[in-house]
């Protein structure tokens, strides 16, 4: 899927987000670099409190106080070699022009994302009339088509959000996000609140629509097993940092970072013999008092000498990147051997 489009759509460099809710700030996202290619599905995975949502709200400029983006750049690349714009420097008016048109967001709770006192039709035509300049009638026709794409009959336009089932509401928000055919759709745990059968149906629809319309997806979840099936590439976050990135399948078959390995081992398999497996001991650190060195070292099964002293940088490794002393030492030795021979 990715080979077709190698041009980047979104380049995040050195992003820092702090929460200034007390005297000293909390570093919720510290120094994240990410690249999203055109037409790609990038999964972001990590436990609660790892900064996944903070990262994407900052990238989409939806952060609310006390969150403040303190450093970094988020370059959004236009089509046909147009110069990239840094989303972090745009004014509200410029951002307003990008929203829906180029970037749309689907949140976890469809109940809260839809306006409870407006019929679905009104919410769709709001967006379509503002951004597409359609007349009221045209907007409703288009809204019906959009709902049709996600398998909701057009007569549902007259329904209020509470009259729809949870799955339908979530599908409606996805249709709404696609209303202006954006280049990027950010999905923050879009299927956490729905049942497995509906989850699968929604994901299948998203991947079909993605094929048809060619948008890119940033998909956030804490369920790595799900992500491996749907993402092209995955970035694993821990304590506000990206600790590993790589092709989805590689993260499953050959995870480099012990945290990725632990996440992969934490869901019970559907096949094979039943054997005892353990979750990850402990819980993610509070961001206010991060452990010294690699933030994962207190929970890590492979920790050794440098882990509690120095923070490993995110370095290229195979088809991806990993931030772990384990590989940096190994690689260092290989370099050493290479030099000796």
């Amino acid at each position: 899927m990715t080979t077709r489009h190698q041009e980047p759509l979104l380049t995040v460099r050195g992003l820092h987000v702090d929460y200034f809710d007390r005297a000293d700030p909390v570093h919720a996202v510290s120094g994240v670099d990410l690249t999203l290619l055109r037409g790609e599905t990038l999964g972001i995975v990590g436990e609660s409190g790892c900064g996944k949502s903070t990262l994407v709200t900052a990238v989409t400029r939806l952060e609310r106080p006390p969150a403040v983006t303190t450093a970094g750049s988020v370059l959004f690349h236009g089509k046909d070699g147009a110069p990239p714009v840094d989303l972090l420097t745009l004014t509200d008016r410029q951002l307003g022009a990008l929203r829906w048109e180029k970037i749309a967001v689907v949140f976890q709770s469809a109940m809260n994302a839809l306006n409870p006192v407006l019929r679905l039709g009104a919410q769709f035509s709001d967006v379509l009339r503002r951004h597409r300049g359609l007349s009221k009638k045209e907007a409703l026709t288009r809204a019906g088509e959009l709902l049709g794409m996600v398998g909701i009959p057009a007569d549902r336009l007259r329904s209020y959000a509470h009259e729809l089932s949870g799955g339908m509401r979530q599908r409606a928000t996805i249709a709404l996000a696609l209303a202006c055919e954006p280049d990027l759709v950010v999905m923050d745990e879009p299927t956490t609140a729905v049942d497995v059968v509906m989850q699968r149906q929604i994901l299948r629809q998203v991947s079909r629509l993605k094929r048809e319309l060619g948008f890119s997806v940033i998909f956030i979840t804490h369920d790595l097993s799900l992500l491996i099936e749907i993402a092209d590439r995955i970035a694993v976050m821990y304590a506000g940092k990206v600790v590993e990135t790589g092709p989805a399948r590689q993260l499953y078959t050959d995870p480099k970072h012990p945290y990725t390995e632990a996440l992969r081992g934490a869901f019970p398999p559907l096949h094979g013999p039943r054997r005892e497996i353990t979750g990850i001991p402990g819980s993610p650190p509070g961001l206010r008092v991060l452990p010294q060195g690699c933030a994962f070292h207190p929970r890590c099964a492979h920790r050794f000498e440098p882990c509690d002293r120095t923070t490993p940088p995110l370095l290229a490794l195979g088809a991806g990147e990993a931030a772990c002393h384990l590989h940096q030492t190994v690689r260092g030795e290989e370099d050493h051997h290479a030099r000796v021979s």
Partner: peptide
Amino acid sequence: LLLESAPDPDREGALL
């Protein structure tokens, strides 16, 4: 149906 819908990384590329 429930089993087919459960996330399963061993099911290669089934979704796409």
